[in-house]
Amino acid sequence: MNASQRRQFSVIRAGVLLVALAVAGCTSVYRDHGYVPTEEDLAKIVVGVDTRDSVAESIGTPGASGVLNDSGYYYVESRFRHYGMREPEVVSRQLVAIRFDQRGVVSGIERYGLEDGRVIPLNPKVTSSNVEDKTFLRQLLGNLGRFNPGAVIQ
């Protein structure tokens, strides 16, 4: 094989590699988050008999619980699709809500999902801050116009 044939071969090999990388970059990647008990596990829970402790013991502790008076256990499972440079898309989401009465006994089990026509928004942020998108230097220079010499003299 002479030098020009080697160059042609390396150009072809580089082209095939670029095409393979382009195709691989455009494939969907799926990520799963959370945990939802199976129907078999939920069938073991008896409404009106099981308590918080027995539910946690039989199917595990949830990722979230009720905000007001610990009214229930909420198991959430989400599946996200990543495609190229696009923002991740929620493909499926399931929520299993196990509700308790004042005595801590199971009063109901419900399952919700995207197919129910309700999008269940999950936001990890509890409070928002107006400072998060500013750098230290931008904050420092932004305060220069707010300087009041009269406040320093008094």
Score class of each variant (00 low, 15 high):
Ala43Cys: 06
His33Met: 09
Glu40Cys: 01
Glu110Cys: 00
Asn148Val: 09
Ala3Glu: 10
Glu132Leu: 09
Pro124Gly: 11
Lys125Arg: 12
Thr27Met: 10
Arg103Cys: 01
Val23Pro: 00
Val11Cys: 12
Gly63Val: 04
Ala24Val: 14
Gln139Arg: 12
Gly145Phe: 04
Phe100Gly: 04
Gly72Pro: 05
Gly104Ser: 03
Pro88Leu: 05
Asp41Phe: 06
Ala22Asp: 00
Ser58Arg: 10
Val47Leu: 02
Glu89Phe: 09
Val152Arg: 03
Val106Asn: 04
Glu110Leu: 07
Met85Thr: 05
Ser28Arg: 03
Ser28Tyr: 00
Ile12Met: 13
Ile153Cys: 00
Ser92Tyr: 07
Gln102Ser: 09
Ala3Lys: 15
Val105Ala: 03
Leu140His: 03
Phe147His: 11
Cys26Leu: 06
Ala3Val: 13
Asn130His: 02
Val36Ile: 13
Phe136Tyr: 08
Phe80Cys: 02
Ala24His: 12
Ser54Pro: 05
Arg103Asn: 13
Thr127Lys: 11
Arg86Met: 12
Thr135Ser: 15
Val36Gly: 08
Glu87Asp: 13
Arg7Cys: 08
Ile12Phe: 13
Phe147Trp: 14
Gly150Gln: 00
Glu40Thr: 11
Leu68Trp: 03
Ala151Asp: 11
Glu57Lys: 11
Cys26Arg: 00
Pro37His: 04
Val11Tyr: 14
Leu114Pro: 01
Pro62Thr: 10
Asp101Glu: 05
Thr38Gly: 11
Val11Lys: 13
Arg99Phe: 10
Ser4Ile: 12
Val29Cys: 00
Ser71Ala: 14
Arg99Trp: 06
Pro149Met: 01
Gln5Asn: 14
Arg99Thr: 10
Gln154Thr: 06
Asp116Arg: 09
Asn143Thr: 13
Met85Asp: 02
Leu137Ser: 05
Arg13Asn: 08
Leu122Gly: 07
Val106Gln: 05
His82Glu: 12
Pro62Lys: 06
Gly145Tyr: 02
Val29Gln: 09
Asp116His: 12
Gly34Trp: 09
Tyr74Cys: 01
Leu21Trp: 07
Val19Gly: 03
His82Asn: 10
Gln5Arg: 12
Asn130Tyr: 04
Asp41Trp: 07
Val106Ala: 05
His82Gln: 09
Leu137Tyr: 01
Val23Leu: 15
Leu140Asp: 02
Ile98Gly: 01
Gln8Arg: 15
Leu18Glu: 08
Val96Thr: 14
Pro124Thr: 09
Gly145Asn: 01
Val19Gln: 00
Ser65Val: 08
